[in-house]
Amino acid sequence: MGEHARDQRRESGALEAEVMAVLWAEGVPMTAGQVHTALGASAPVYKTVLTVLGRLHGKGLLERERVGRAHAYVPRRGPADEVASEMNQALVRGADRFAVLQRFVDGLDPDDERALRDLLDSRD
């Protein structure tokens, strides 16, 4: 496998993640066009979004329904998701997790909280 092909495969994995993140964040059925818009400035071409949605549906991660002439996609949730989620909740509250997994943020000090709010407010 050449360098280019490997790059492309990694890219498509990242794209699947981004599309899935959009669908979960919105939480309502979305067409390919809506997903494309929601991806914002970094969005790939519409056709690529359509391909990625088809692939995610093929993997059983999405459910789809017909809306007029297009398909609307929504994340498929099963009972296993809830179980995994609860277990995760119990696990990550455990003792020294630093060596097992790296988190994005790990809580916040009240003093820092105000400073961070100010930072966000200055631009919002």
């Binding site: 498509s12 994995g13 990242a14 794209l15 699947e16 993640a17 599309v19 899935m20 993140a21 979960w24 995610l56 993997k59 059983g60 991660l61 994340p75 949730r77 296993a80 998701d81 809830e82 179980v83 995994a84 989620s85 277990m87 995760n88 909740q89 696990l91 990550v92 455990g94 997790r97 097992v100 997994l101 790296q102 988190r103 994005f104 943020v105």
Partner: peptide, 30 residues
């Protein structure tokens, strides 16, 4: 702990992403 987290790892992933349907905010690399 890593063995226990295998249950989370086994979830179907979109690329490298696994989304957990929980309302609290959390994110980590497994």
């Amino acid at each position: 702990e890593l063995r226990a987290l295998d249950a989370v790892r086994a979830r179907p992933a979109a690329g490298d992403l696994i989304v957990l349907p929980a309302d609290h905010a959390d994110a980590y690399a497994l």
